[in-house]
Design a protein around this nucleic acid. Sequence first.
RNA 1: GGUCGGGUAGCUCAGCUGGAUAGAGCAACAGCCUUCUAAGCUGUGGGUCAAGGGUUCGAAUCCCUUCCUGAUCACCA
Length: 597
Amino acid sequence: MNIEAKLTEAVKKAITTLYGVEPQDAQIQLSKTKKEFEGHLTLVVFPFLKVSKKNPEATATEIGEYLLANEPAISAFNVIKGFLNLTIAPAVWVEMLNQINQTAHFGVTEADDNSPLVMIEYSSPNTNKPLHLGHVRNNLLGYSISEILKANGNKVVKTNIVNDRGIHICKSMLAWKKWGEGCTPESTGKKGDHLIGDFYVLFDKNYKAELAELQAKGMTKEEAEAASALMAEAREMLRLWEAGDQDTYSMWEMMNNWVYAGFDETYKMMGVDFDKIYYESQTYLEGKDKVLEGLEKGLLYTKEDGSVWADLTPQGLDHKLLLRGDGTSVYMTQDIGTAKIRFADYPIDKMVYVVGNEQNYHFQVLSILLDRLGFKWGKDLVHFSYGMVELPEGKMKSREGTVVDADDLMDEMISTARETSEELGKLDGCTPEEANEIAKTVGLGALKYFILKVDPRKNMTFNPKESIDFNGNTGPFIQYTHARIRSVLRKAADMGIVIPTELPADLNLSEKEEGLIQNLASFPSVVKDAGDNFSPAVIANYIYDLVKDYNQFYHDFSILKEENESLRIFRLALSENVARVIRTGMGLLGINVPDRM
RNA sequence: GGUCGGGUAGCUCAGCUGGAUAGAGCAACAGCCUUCUAAGCUGUGGGUCAAGGGUUCGAAUCCCUUCCUGAUCACCA
């Protein structure tokens, strides 16, 4: 049992004994004492004034005296206004560190056979262009939230739905066919996703030119769009693809494979992965059956042109199209189909979609529709909705060439990390392989932490002109602290020091040291909080606080040069556990921590 | 216009299930390396928590109104 739960019980008993009324748990507000006051935990006594019938100071003093007399863990208290600051006995701290030290996967709850299965969909790229900064946030959040939910005792299946069909792919295919002269990733030396992306841009360029030409001849914009020969060809290609035309299908397959090879490289560099990948080309027909079934049951309705709609006005929303007049599917229908297949594949207890907040409406509707069509889990699906990544001048716009490419960004971060490391002389004595590894770990750590430390729901700003910091509240700062601890532990091992699993209890600890143990001990509740609220940022901010605290300790106290042997060993154990929590916590963010840097 | 977010220091962000004098980092300035890694530590300056009202012993936090801002309301995905 942790110290807060223990004290909550003690306070409950104190109130019951003193005032004859058993307080509700919510009334017992125990929080970490602010650093300008003496003590470890603070009880707010205002809620008890009604039963104590005394002023705040008298009430706090009375409770404090009771606790001091009856709860061995309390060694002192002081009262300031309505706040009762409690000091916890030194032996309790050592015992707490012992417990942390002896816990195999501290902060992590392993899943067992009875654990709920959560499927998490993230990434979900289109195959007509490479991944950009927006995808980076999505991927990092998706991977991290998967790790966090695992650490909360869930079985997790990470999935990716690749949008590999539709008019956008046909545009790239058509441009390649017309102007590509048979080039390939091999012949051009370009990553497949970038090559396809270039043809997508090329299509757009030519299409624009065609529209301008037609408009110059006196057509309106709408007339020009309708008259465009290029767009007609693209649509014809889509028709051929859907009809199963062999040549079109082969070309589509070949070009998609180029893209997948490119994506795989990006994912690998980013350090994210998937347990199961779905392709829209394989799922987009599934939703149609379900919609027609709903139509038969009278849950949906048809318009004169044969299109199928859902009336969502009972839920305060609008009418939603599900099948076009020609019987083809829309996005919503595809998502219904995909969901159906997934739940046939896995015994899913909860479905989580990591998708940007621009699609809030879509998921609100999806939830209602799945529920209406008889999927019992529909109502409880989670849309993990995150904010956009914006540039200082606003949204990224591919037309204006302001899109920040994921591969470029990662490369830049890594080379900046390398330069910084070299300037600081951190790579002296490393093999080239080690130097590469460190630059990669640090560069990606900086990027990932930069993105994940922000509350996912909020939009965030990224300024490409200012490189991401390596000092202060950053990934490298945390990684550096870990490396320093590992360095101390290596030296300790060289000196033949072994850290025992049971530390001597009679230690005189400083406030800083007690505070660090208190901080460490709260890690499991932070992991839970992050899981409950779907927020990697909670973990990131916790680790930063811990590391900040540890660096002050590191600066103020000697570890290896401490003369008192018990204390020396205690500080080593404390440091080792701080390093463990840093590693585990950063692992939940998908960030590696190096042993040296 | 309807719906849903967001507005905290010059900048990037914490704090938001109500608690003590609103916190970090960056940027600026001033210190600290013969001592476990200075990607560190210490200090200085910087705030009408968008505005107004309400609830409360207590409001950045909860409620209402207004302002600003973003997303969305497609037979695109």
